[in-house]
Structures are given as C-alpha cells and as structure tokens.
C-alpha cells in the first residue's frame, strides 16, 4: 500500500515536471479585443492570419516574414497570394491551420466562426481575436497586432500617419459648404447599401457626404423605387465584380435620368477592398471618397 502511494507520488511529480518543461517560459498572458485571456508567445515565429484584413495589417507592419498562412482572397499586397491558404475566413480549414504549426493565430470576430477559435485553443494554439468596428478601433487593432508581433515602433508610425491623413481630410472637408446625398451600393441584386454601423458610413460622413441609407440596419436592402425616391446626387458602387458587370449596372441606372447622380454623370465603380476591410487602406478609401464627393475642393487647392 505504502509502496503504491509513493509510486503515485513519484508519478505525479514526473507529470508536474513534464508539464512545467512543456510550458514555454517566454510567454505572456494578454487579453484580446473580446476580453478573453490568452497566452501568447513573447516572440511569435509562426503566425496564421485568419482574415485578409489581418494579412494586410501584418504586411503594413513589415512582419510578413512571420506570416506562415493566410485565408483565401488575401490578395493585398500581391505577394500575400503566394502564401499557404487555410480556407476562406468564414470557412476555415482546421487541419490546414494545424499543419502549419502556428504559435499564434489572429482571428476576427466578424466572420471567423467562434467554434474555430475554441477548437484552436483546445489544441493549444492561441487565437487572438480582434473586433475593429470603426477607424479608431482599426488603429487600435494595428497597435495591438504591432505589440503582439514586436513591431510597436512600426505600428505607432503607421497609426500616426493614418491619423494625420484623416485630419487633413477633415480640415479639407470643413471648407465644403454642402453635404451631397450619397447612395453607396454594395450589392447589385438585390440592391444593398450601408447603415450607420459600418466603415462605409463613417467614411462617407468624414468625406463630407450624407449617407442616404443610414439607420440601425447594417446592410439594408433597397428596391429601385426607394433609391429613386431618395434621389442620390452621387452613386458609388463597390463590387468585387469585373468592369463588364459595372457597365451593365450603370446602363440599368441610366434608364432613370431624373436621378441627379445619373443626370450629372456622378456614378462611380470602386474597389470594395478600400471600404470594407478594416485595414490602414481605409484611409486610402477615405481620400478616394473625398475626391468623388467634393471634387471642387481639389480644384481650389490646385
């Protein structure tokens, strides 16, 4: 009996010893944007980005050497296309993630299924979740990812540059006397626009426009009749679709020349990636919008 007990003790001590060896000493506990406590390595060496926006941020921070896997449609910068893929960000392939042996995964709340984060943790792979909701939290996210990847300096610089560009836009827009009515169309069939709780709304307002679709619904649907009634002065269509589709959509809208935007030929197609990805490129999207909404401000300065 005594012998058995001592054997159990020895066994337990061995287990404890093994566990303490197994725990990396160079790790820290951080709290992610969802408030979950996560143990992450001090020096992550193998990072998998679970959304295209996170890939972009890691590239912008100059830490692409740590990036070992990305999701489908991670197409910016173009070099990211060549990295191993772990499925699309809404349909992640757990097996492919694990095969890349990551020591850190960065996930996004909107899109990544929660079950994936839970499964990764049960496999001892930390999944740091970010939840950018507006320009301010995008900057916050850049700073946090910079901190995780030991790129604080680059992150500070990047955010400073973003802030000064946003300020420049603000001071430019303050000279404009009028806010044109903007209809921002992100879906072609059915017609879908953007409500108040979206990046697009924030950018339209910052760029000195009035979002015709503002409201509590994030992505409200519209009938053609409703759009006619709103009489937009500027119609911006963002799409992943090719130019040929845009021509068709434009021709469709052109049947209603009593819409001011059609009459004045202010219907534009833009790359949706500038507006719906929570990345530093949102500021590019903002500058682009100002040029579309207030071209007169640029005439004066030049």
């Amino acid at each position: 009996m005594i012998k058995n007990t001592s054997m159990v003790i020895v066994l337990m001590m061995t287990v404890v010893l093994l566990i303490s060896i197994g725990t990396p000493s160079d790790a820290k506990i951080v709290s992610d944007q969802l408030g979950r406590k996560i143990t992450v390595p001090d020096n992550p060496q193998r990072v998998v980005a679970l959304a295209p926006s996170i890939t972009e941020i890691i590239y912008a921070l100059g830490r692409e050497n740590l990036l070992k896997g990305v999701t489908l449609y991670s197409d910016f910068p173009p070099a990211a296309v060549n990295l191993p893929k772990v499925g699309s960000y809404v349909q992640l392939n757990l097996e492919k993630i694990v095969a890349l042996k990551p020591d850190l995964c960065i996930a996004i709340k909107d899109g990544n299924p929660r079950v994936v984060a839970r499964r990764l943790e049960s496999l001892n792979i930390p999944a740091y979740a970010v939840d950018p909701r507006n320009l301010e939290t995008v900057m916050q996210t850049v700073l946090e990812i910079g901190n995780l990847l030991n790129a604080d300096q680059q992150a500070d610089l990047l955010v400073q540059r973003m802030r000064s560009r946003v300020l420049k836009v603000k001071s430019l827009v303050s000279k404009a006397g009028y806010r044109p009515r903007v209809f921002f169309q992100i879906g072609i069939s059915p017609i879908v626009s953007v409500g108040t709780d979206t990046f697009m709304h924030e950018l339209i307002v910052l760029a000195g426009g009035k979002n015709l679709a503002k409201g509590p619904v994030a992505y409200p649907r519209f009938s053609r009749e409703q759009v006619l009634a709103l009489s937009p002065e500027i119609l911006i269509i963002t799409s992943m679709a090719r130019a040929a589709v845009f021509e068709k959509v434009k021709a469709e809208w052109s049947r209603w020349p009593n819409i001011p935007a059609i009459r004045d030929q202010r219907i534009f197609l833009e790359d949706s990636n500038f507006f719906d990805r929570p990345t530093p490129r949102l500021v590019d999207g903002l500058e682009l919008l100002v040029k579309l909404i207030h071209p007169e401000l640029f005439d004066e300065t030049q």
């Binding site: 757990l94 049960s122 496999l123």
Partner: peptide, 11 residues
C-alpha cells in the same frame, strides 16, 4: 506531433 494532432484530434 503535428501529424498526431491532425489525425487524432481533428480527423
């Protein structure tokens, strides 16, 4: 060990 994880904890 990575293959073990894939085989026994995923597949």
């Amino acid at each position: 060990p990575m293959l073990d994880t894939i085989i026994w904890q995923i597949r």
